[in-house]
Design a binder for these strands. Structure first.
Length: 366
DNA sequence: AGTCGCCGGAAGTCTACC
DNA sequence: GGTAGACTTCCGGCGACT
């Protein structure tokens, strides 16, 4: 069996995971295959393994973990065979140091073993005060899974080469960074006004948000197929006859798994700086006060997760305001784009997520 | 006056659950 | 199939700012 480049898979996973990442991220990371994943992309990778015990890691999560270790060690992933990584967390946890060295080599093996021990002890020691925190981690995993293309979740090692080469082809064929600066070609949309709201709203934003336009053709093509089948959520716009055809389409029967709630999505962005990319920041970490830095970009990400390309910050903020009644969020009067987590929210406090609570740690932290 | 973010009512969809 | 919860969409209004 040949040894497909692990880093290629990881790089693709990252790029497909966040196709609408911030402008600087993509503009400075041309869509070429690299031996080690670009740091930005890597930081934006799922890292869902961090939130579950190594014993419970799936093969995909093991792959993510290995990818991070490869990057940290500046290890040349070309020397790694994907076949070596085709293990789940349970199997991995049974491996001893010498076995790891045997499989991953003398350079990477010990580091992987040490990292695994760290993760194991972290999850054994971590005292989660609320059961929902476990659910939160699962929701985060779901979020990451749902956000990505099915590359990681469907890729099986026997079919890696085919899948990778196909993704390479699709990617190079379809991904166009010029989209960041140019209007999207109308043929990529099923409905011309679907994208108009985001472009329009992005232009309204006081801060530059080029990232709003960074939606790959790959994604758009997928959404095109979806929107042709799926009736848009919410109240239909007044006098909009263009969408009438999709309102008559048969109802989708397949129920998607319960997804992350909006406040959890926001929280996850805030507590995972590697996924934040300057979208939001803590104003007061201790009090749970946060601010949208790139409101429309966050809205686009939310829309991406909900498969709704017409999501805007205005709509997102309406949903946020509903949380006031439920004490999931509290009002922060007089400050634009600023919200505060309420008493019915969870999983954002430092002590809840196992971070050391330092004095003077409020504010500023991503 | 125009723009922007925020507010909250109303009406709608979608999904999970019973 | 019915229902509840969680949004989504639209809209009119408000205050701050330019």
């Amino acid at each position: 069996m040949s040894s497909p480049c692990l880093s290629s898979v990881l790089t693709h996973a990252n790029l497909t995971m966040y196709p609408t990442g911030p402008t600087d991220m993509l503009l400075h990371q041309p869509p070429t295959l690299q031996l080690s994943a670009p740091s930005h992309c890597s930081k934006a990778s799922a890292q869902s393994y961090r939130h579950s015990s190594p014993h419970c890691w799936s093969e995909d999560q093991v792959l993510e973990w290995i990818g991070d270790q490869v990057e940290n060690a500046k290890f040349d992933a070309n020397f790694l065979s994907l076949a070596c990584c085709a293990v789940n967390g349970s199997t991995l946890c049974q491996m001893k140091t010498d076995q790891m060295i045997g499989v991953f080599g003398p350079q990477l093996g010990p580091q992987l073993h040490q990292s695994l021990q760290d993760h194991k002890s972290k999850h054994e020691l971590q005292n989660l005060p609320e059961p929902e925190l476990n659910e939160t981690c699962q929701l985060l995993d779901n979020f990451l899974d749902n956000l990505s293309f099915p590359l990681l979740s469907t890729l099986r090692f026997g079919a890696v080469e085919d899948a990778v080469s196909k993704r390479e082809f699709d990617y190079q064929d379809d991904y166009d960074l010029s989209l960041a600066l140019e209007p999207m070609a109308p043929e990529y949309f099923s409905d011309g006004d679907y994208m108009s709201s985001s472009n329009e709203s992005a232009s309204n934003e006081s801060e530059p948000e080029l990232s709003c336009h960074l939606i790959s053709k790959v994604q758009i093509k997928l959404e095109k197929e979806e929107t042709q089948l799926k009736r848009p959520r919410g109240r239909p716009p007044k006098g909009n006859q263009e969408r009438s055809s999709i309102y008559n389409t048969p109802k989708k029967t397949k129920h998607a798994p319960r997804g992350t709630h909006l406040w959890e999505f926001i929280r996850d962005i805030l507590i995972h700086p590697e996924k934040n990319q300057g979208l939001m920041k803590w104003e007061d970490r201790h009090e749970g006060v946060f601010k949208f830095l790139k409101s429309e970009a966050v809205a686009q990400m939310w829309g991406q997760k909900k498969r709704n390309s017409s999501m805007t910050y205005e709509k997102l903020s309406r949903a946020m305001r509903y949380y006031y009644k439920r004490d999931i969020l509290e009002r922060v009067d007089g400050r634009r784009l600023v919200y505060k987590f309420g008493k019915n929210s969870s999983g954002w406090k430092m002590e809840e997520i196992g971070m050391p609570v330092l004095s003077h740690q409020a504010g500023g932290g991503l």
